[in-house]
Computed example of a mutant assay.
Amino acid sequence: GDGYTILQEYQAGTNPTDASDFPAPQEVYATGFVGQYFTGTEFDSFVYSQRDATVNFNWNSGSPSAELPRDRFSVRWQGWFTPPHNEGTRDYTFTTTTDDGVRLFLNGSTVIDQWKNQSPTSYNATASLEAGTPVAITMEYFEFGWGATAQLAITDAATGDAISTTNTVQHLALDSEFAESTLNDGIDDLYKLRYGLPLMQPSASRVLNDSGVTVLEAYQSGLHPYTLETVSEPESPVTSQPGGTGDASGSVTLSWTPPGTRVDGSSISLSEIDRYRINYGQDAANLTQTLEVPAGTTSTTVTGLAPGTWYFTIQVIDINGLSSEPSDPVEHQVN
């Protein structure tokens, strides 16, 4: 009854038949960066956070989403880069290309600082990194006017080979239910990522609102540091491949993670998602039954299922009615 599988309980050393004995919460990580999007060129007003698989954007004269202006916006991307070599140290070159300003930090130290209006321009910084030791990457960017470009590339300095950030960069998943504080400043990393704060820069004493409430005070009170609105509880994390857990009453609970990109690779914000469509049936090639759930939901229970094998897929539908292809089917046996 505690929501954990027998395998998860076995790995944690807890009793799978005792609902009061369950695994301690763990941080859940996902590939890519967390992008924090703001109006203004100095992170003036936080708008939203989302997963960005890579930092490789060319918005031309547009903006990242309908929620941001075409000019005068800023973005902060944060993630942990794990050098892919096997032993010792190796030099890696980090290259930013932006129109306009850019700052790049490694483990909180500034390695590129070109915070100015400019046409698309590239800058490099090289760092010697230990094998297997994660390094915090923070890239800050602002767009002032006209074109908007933001790109980050990592290469092996010795060979010039490009390093895939998709395979080497991770971030604390925004739907994780637990997080610690990298800076040990009393504010957990999940709160920082969700509400527009840097992980590696002190912010506890900063005031980001008109009421004089510090970030630490807002966090301790369960408030948004910019708007002072009450923030919701975290969603339950998805720590494994989405699947079903059912019981003899003929119900299955499905969980999923919202997408960060569209099928063409462009980003999609949570505000652009309208709903999810669950397709299900007992023939994997002919899922005739559907259930739609609203955006902001990351799990749902399908009831009224007869005993036997059931198959489920999910589709994402955006605010313009565009739909993704169904996911690969997930199979579950209802007893």
Rank of each mutant, 00 (worst) to 15 (best):
G145R: 11
L183R: 15
E143K: 15
D18G: 03
R72Y: 12
F57M: 12
M200D: 15
R72F: 05
F43R: 06
P69L: 10
T303S: 13
P83V: 11
E292Y: 00
L193P: 03
P234S: 05
V293P: 00
A127Y: 05
N184H: 04
Y311M: 04
V263D: 15
D189F: 06
I273F: 08
V169Q: 01
E9L: 03
G145L: 08
R70P: 03
F38K: 00
Y195T: 07
G222I: 10
V330G: 08
S20G: 06
R51G: 02
G186N: 05
T31F: 07
Y10R: 07
I154G: 00
A248Y: 14
D283L: 12
W256E: 12
N320E: 15
P134M: 03
H332N: 11
V213M: 13
A306S: 14
V207M: 02
A24D: 15
M200R: 09
A162E: 12
T309R: 10
Q241G: 10
V316H: 04
P329N: 12
Y92A: 03
N279P: 01
L270H: 13
F81D: 00
M200V: 10
Y226P: 01
S61I: 13
D161K: 09
T290G: 05
G186C: 01
L208I: 08
Q220N: 14
L254A: 04
E233R: 11
T309A: 11
G222Y: 08
R275W: 08
S267M: 11
Y226G: 00
T98V: 10
S65N: 03
A24M: 09
I273W: 10
E87F: 15
A285M: 13
L199Y: 07
Y37K: 00
F46I: 10
P120I: 10
T182S: 14
L270G: 13
Q151N: 12
F57H: 09
T168G: 00
A24H: 09
P294D: 11
L129D: 01
S74K: 01
T227H: 07
P294R: 06
E217R: 08
L193T: 08
T257K: 15
S211V: 05
T31H: 13
D283P: 05
A12Q: 06
L172E: 07
G132M: 02
P64L: 04
N86S: 15
A218C: 03
Y311T: 08
W80K: 06
P258F: 10
T17S: 12
T300L: 00
S122R: 12
T300R: 06
T133K: 14
L254S: 06
L322Y: 15
S164C: 07
A127R: 09
E87T: 15
E130Y: 06
I163K: 02
N60A: 13
I278W: 07
Y123I: 09
G212M: 06
I278L: 14
R51H: 09
I154R: 02
L199C: 02
V215H: 01
D156V: 06
E177T: 10
L228P: 04
F73V: 02
Y10D: 11
S74Q: 12
N184R: 03
A30E: 14
G35A: 11
L104H: 08
E140G: 02
N320M: 09
T31Y: 14
K192D: 04
H85E: 01
L152K: 07
S122E: 06
Q201C: 00
N15G: 00
H332Q: 13
V293L: 13
P329E: 09
A150F: 12
E143T: 13
P237I: 02
L223K: 14
Q315N: 05
F73Y: 15
F142E: 01
